[in-house]
């Protein structure tokens, strides 16, 4: 346990040090990446640990973001907005799970995709409130968290890191708990788990709900940190991205979501600044991972000898 904890604290310390030395452009990028990594951690709990391959997580991200955005727009506080975002993500995921978890495998993928698409279209339909694809900016007054002005680079990075640190450590505690072992068991052999007395439906529902909670926090955090919310974050694209991050970093590894988010974000950023090839980069990365490295970077490292990697 100590070795694992030291590794995670070292990663967090490294990120804190990075905040002090990064130039402005990368500063903003890293804050963005940290929020996306929180989202990917949520995705990892469902997909990486429990084996639930969802194509509908954008709904949980979008629900959290929209709830926080509308709250702040109405004059609510940022701290409450974060909590509200968490609740919205949790609620959306629970509702989705109650229905979608009656299916499995490919059907589960399509059902989650369809629910998320219906949610996205609903945001567009109520464009007068949600701002539709263009979204709406958040008032500066609502972007104050514990005395920090989130529109400033330094505080923004600090808050992003704080949210990420909590998410990372909660994830670590979760997957090393007895409940975490139950999730992995569900992924590895559902029938065996059932015959050990675990209820597959409620176990998976709990995993999806927790996953939705993380996604909702990420959505709310992203909106507050960058002062903007919009329906475009609920598109299918945003369901694919966390899958890509997790696959790249290593599904079912605690640090995989962060690693995948950092690498993929910079890869897409570089590709789209050179040419207009960002779509192809996402596509090629997905193909490459599925074909040649289905376990991702950290998953492969774990297989090749670093067995203790959580």
């Amino acid at each position: 346990m100590t070795r694992v904890l030291v590794l995670h604290l070292a990663v967090l310390a490294g990120l804190a040090a990075l905040g002090a030395v990064l130039p402005a452009y990368h500063h903003g990028m890293m804050a963005r990446i940290l929020m996306l990594a929180v989202y990917a951690i949520g995705y990892n709990i469902a997909f990486g640990y429990t084996g639930l391959l969802s194509l509908g997580h954008a709904m949980f991200l979008g629900a959290g973001m929209m709830a926080a955005g509308l709250w702040v727009q109405q004059g609510g506080s940022a701290a409450a907005a974060l909590g509200l975002g968490a609740l919205a993500g949790l609620g959306a995921a629970t509702l989705t799970g109650v229905l979608a978890l009656r299916t499995a495998g490919v059907s589960f993928m399509i059902v989650t995709l369809m629910f998320a698409q219906a949610f996205y279209l609903t945001l567009l339909y109520f464009g007068a409130i949600t701002g539709g694809d263009e979204g709406f900016p958040l008032p500066a007054a609502g972007r104050q968290l514990m005395g920090l002005d989130l529109s400033q680079d330094g505080p923004r990075y600090a808050v992003a890191l704080a949210i990420f640190a909590v998410a990372l450590l909660v994830q670590l505690a979760l997957v090393r708990s007895r409940f975490g072992r139950t999730l992995v068991a569900m992924r590895e052999n559902e029938e065996r788990s059932r015959m050990l007395g675990y209820n597959p439906f409620t176990t998976k529902l709990a995993a999806l709900a927790i996953s939705g909670l993380f996604s909702g926090v990420a959505g709310a955090g992203y909106g507050l940190l960058f002062g903007y919310v919009g329906a475009s974050f609920a598109t299918i694209q945003y369901s694919i991205l966390p899958m890509l991050y997790v696959l790249l970093g290593g599904a079912g590894t605690t640090l995989g979501p962060l690693l995948g988010a950092v690498l993929m974000f910079y890869l897409i950023d570089t590709a789209s600044s050179l040419t207009e090839l960002s779509l192809a980069v996402i596509g090629a990365a997905l193909l490459f991972l599925v074909l040649f490295a289905p376990k991702g970077i950290l998953g492969t490292l774990r297989d090749r000898g670093i067995r203790w990697l959580p």
Binding site: L53, G105, L279, A280, G283, L287, V290, L291
Partner: peptide, 29 residues
Amino acid sequence: LLRRLKHDPEATIVATIGLSYILQQGALS
């Protein structure tokens, strides 16, 4: 491509998602 994945249902979905991005990009370019 798909034969290499042994037409595994879930892997095929992920692969064809990747493919659709590449085809879109190809048409755009």
